[in-house]
């Protein structure tokens, strides 16, 4: 049960990353590699601030803002200076590596016995259960701390999801979605599509950094290497989500991204349990994403091979 709660919590935290990437990769169709850097930025900044005695909530908020700035820089590099999407992302990601080291002062900050954003929830739970350190979930004893984290993160995730859904359905959000679809049309409607790209990348990387801040607090450390491969994980989660529930409406797409991330974490947890070497994890993920990307084409050509001939008959 601990394993499942853990995977769920991890999934929920990373679903914020997926939501962020949903905006960049799916809404404005921007292949944004900044993600790998901005998730670490969120983690390192929040860790340093918490260590310095800031409120974990305030620290998390600061992490969001810092991520937004990073996304904005990528956006401006692309729109203002006409640098290709991927290159703009790589530039910012590379720069962020040094920035993150600067922020932390070293490559790793442990967060032991510090306050986290789930502290309040834990106190609430303690009052509720009468001071025990474990509570009963479907017959299993679960540490109260873990449960508190899970509940807090779940609430944050649900609120974020609802807000995002609501935001994308406003006049502003509608135009934002159209920007990825047809920038020419957006300009013809009197909207500066470049501004929309910069804004979207800011929002996207803000969410990614938020995810990073929560991750640092949950794992109990921030590491300068922790962002590597995160973009591929996020992409894999989004693809799983789309396969799971489709994308027939905005709400479903957002729900799909969250569920997809959780399922992805569960699959990884199970795989690790079965003895998958953690070092191979990223390779396996990459291969998975590869197949997920080419599967639609393979299906198409396969089906035309099998059924194409009979149509003529």
């Amino acid at each position: 049960m601990n394993l499942i709660i853990g995977a769920f919590t991890m999934g929920l935290i990373l679903s914020l990353l997926s939501l962020g990437m949903l905006i960049s990769f799916r809404m404005i169709k921007f292949t944004d590699i900044t993600v790998d850097g901005s998730i670490t930025l969120g983690a390192s900044l929040s860790a340093v601030l918490i260590m310095a005695g800031w409120s974990p909530w305030l620290a998390t908020l600061m992490a969001f803002s810092a991520g937004a700035v990073a996304g904005m820089v990528t956006g401006i590099l692309h729109t203002r200076f006409k640098i290709q999407e991927i290159l703009a992302g790589i530039l910012v990601m590379t720069a962020l590596y040094s920035v993150n080291l600067r922020i932390m002062g070293r490559s790793n900050i442990p967060l032991l016995d510090t306050e986290t954003i789930s502290g309040g929830t834990e106190k609430l739970l303690q009052q509720f259960t009468g001071g025990t350190s474990k509570m009963n979930v479907f017959g299993w004893p679960v540490p109260l701390t873990d449960m508190a984290v899970f509940i807090t993160i779940a609430i944050i995730c649900i609120i974020t999801g609802i807000l995002l859904n609501r935001f994308l359905k406003t006049h502003f959000g509608t135009v934002l979605r159209a920007t990825g679809n047809n920038p020419q049309m957006v300009r013809a409607q009197g909207v500066n599509n470049n501004t929309m790209v910069v804004f979207s990348l800011a929002l996207s990387n803000g969410l990614v950094a938020l995810s990073g801040a929560l991750l640092a607090q949950y794992q109990g450390f921030a590491d300068v290497q922790m962002g590597i491969g995160m973009m591929v994980w996020g992409l894999a989660s989004i693809i799983i989500g789309e396969a799971l529930v489709g994308k027939s409406s905005l709400g479903i797409t957002i729900t799909g991204a969250i569920l997809g991330t959780i399922l992805f974490r569960l699959l990884i947890a199970i795989a690790l349990r079965w003895g998958l070497n953690p070092n191979d994890l990223k390779l396996v993920t990459a291969v998975f994403v590869f197949f997920a990307l080419v599967a639609p084409y393979m299906f198409k050509s396969l089906s035309s091979k099998f059924f194409g001939g009979s149509r003529h008959a």
């Binding site: 609501r166 935001f167 359905k169 406003t170 006049h171 502003f172 959000g173 509608t174 135009v175 979605r177 159209a178 679809n181 047809n182 020419q184 049309m185 957006v186 013809a188 409607q189 009197g190 909207v191």
Partner: peptide, 30 residues
């Protein structure tokens, strides 16, 4: 195909045109 956003609904496309050149408030569009 250049004048409308393919993946968005007819209503959403028209709503964008209904505010051509105007502000895009944070109110539900549809």
């Amino acid at each position: 195909f250049a004048g409308s956003a393919a993946e968005m609904t007819i209503a959403e496309n028209i709503i964008m045109a209904m505010r051509r050149g105007q502000s895009r408030p944070l109110r539900l569009a549809v």
